[in-house]
């Protein structure tokens, strides 16, 4: 690396060095000077020229120097990230810390909302009364529910910001947009399940299953947050939008709550807990890591992409080779 060279460079010296060089340069400009200048004036002009050249040059050097250092630092960081992504223990990073924290806030808020909300929907069940009283009675649970609501809103808003402002967020969002390939993958998968097709479909970073999960949550958040705030600020909502909007919000909030809860318990829990491949549960949500074999199997296309871009050595065992990957290849991979 050129780091050591960069460290030996002292930009503060630039001006005096350049000044010397520029002084020599001005001598070559003698014939450009006007004849009516005295010897003394010529001397002073040369001095000034040399000074001006030196200032410009040193500013330029400093700028290029800083830009270079910046680039090198970013480089080192991305290498570091890469290194973390592919651990020596045969795992790869599937979820960044950023995403893991978003997921934790999301599920913590959702659990709070479900345990304080569903007893209201199923108020006839005796377990509902028990649960509500266990949590301190209805006047307390409505506060807890609203704390969960604020948590959910914040993580939702932050996720929108993340999907726009962060490169990783933009990239993932782009990859989550449904494509015709997802429909093909779905039918391929069905064929595989039924034994019509021999091979599994190959998935990229997000399979149609994960895309469904993501967009189900997206839809659920939009419905629940919108209707939830209409219920929270009911007088304002009815005064502004009319009672029928409020009635729709009541119904939608209640129905979508059940749909979301069932989808999480049945679908999401199957995919990350009860699937025999995962049981008793994947730890990806906690450490963000995934075994390379699983990664190869479930995200084959992303794996290939990483191989091609050099982000991952075959099998993920030889960590040292990564450093040799050319910068161009690294920059090509998103």
């Amino acid at each position: 690396m050129s780091d050591s060279g960069a460290r030996g460079w002292r930009p503060t010296d630039t001006e005096s060095v350049v000044r010397g060089v520029a002084r020599g340069l001005t001598d070559a400009l003698n014939h450009e000077m006007r004849e009516d200048l005295t010897e003394d004036q010529v001397e002073r002009l040369k001095e000034r020229l040399a000074g001006s050249l030196a200032a410009d040059a040193s500013a330029g050097v400093r700028r290029v120097h800083h830009a270079f250092l910046d680039q090198e630092r970013r480089h080192a960081k991305s290498l570091e990230r890469r290194k973390r992504r592919e651990g020596a223990d045969g795992t790869v990073e599937r979820l960044s810390l950023h995403l893991r924290v978003q997921h934790m806030v999301l599920f913590a808020s959702t659990i709070i909302l479900i345990v304080t909300g569903l007893p209201i929907k199923f108020h006839d069940a005796s377990v509902s009364v028990f649960l509500i009283n266990l949590m301190g009675g209805p006047e307390v649970t409505r506060i807890i529910h609203r704390i969960g609501a604020v948590g959910l809103t914040c993580v939702g808003a932050y996720h929108l910001f993340y999907s726009m402002a962060f490169e990783a967020g933009r990239r993932d969002f782009g990859l989550l947009i449904p494509r015709p390939q997802d429909i093909k993958d779905f039918f391929h998968q069905m064929g595989y399940f039924l034994g019509i097709r021999r091979e599994k479909p190959l998935f990229g970073r997000f399979s149609y299953i994960e895309k469904f999960d993501y967009w189900a949550v997206y839809w659920g958040m939009v419905v629940m947050i919108t209707s939830g705030y209409l219920l929270w600020f009911k007088v304002l909502a009815i005064n502004q939008f009319g009672k029928s909007i409020y009635d729709i919000a009541v119904e939608a909030h209640s129905d979508e709550a059940l749909l979301a809860t069932l989808a999480i318990i049945i679908w999401h829990f199957y995919n990350v807990h009860f699937n025999p491949k995962r049981f008793p549960g994947s730890l990806t949500w906690w450490n963000g890591r995934m075994r390379v074999e699983d990664f190869k199997e479930e995200h084959a296309l992303e794996y290939e992409e990483m191989l091609r871009s050099g982000g991952l050595e075959h099998g993920g065992q030889e960590a040292g080779v990564r450093a040799g990957v050319s910068a161009e290849a690294r920059r090509e991979s998103p």
Partner: peptide, 24 residues
């Protein structure tokens, strides 16, 4: 406090199972 005339528009006793509940 602050309830306006919109509170009187539409039904108060809404039964979502019943067609007369309209859009709900």
């Amino acid at each position: 406090p602050g309830a306006n005339a919109n509170f009187a528009k539409g039904r108060i006793h809404v039964d979502p199972e019943d067609r007369s509940a309209g859009i709900v």
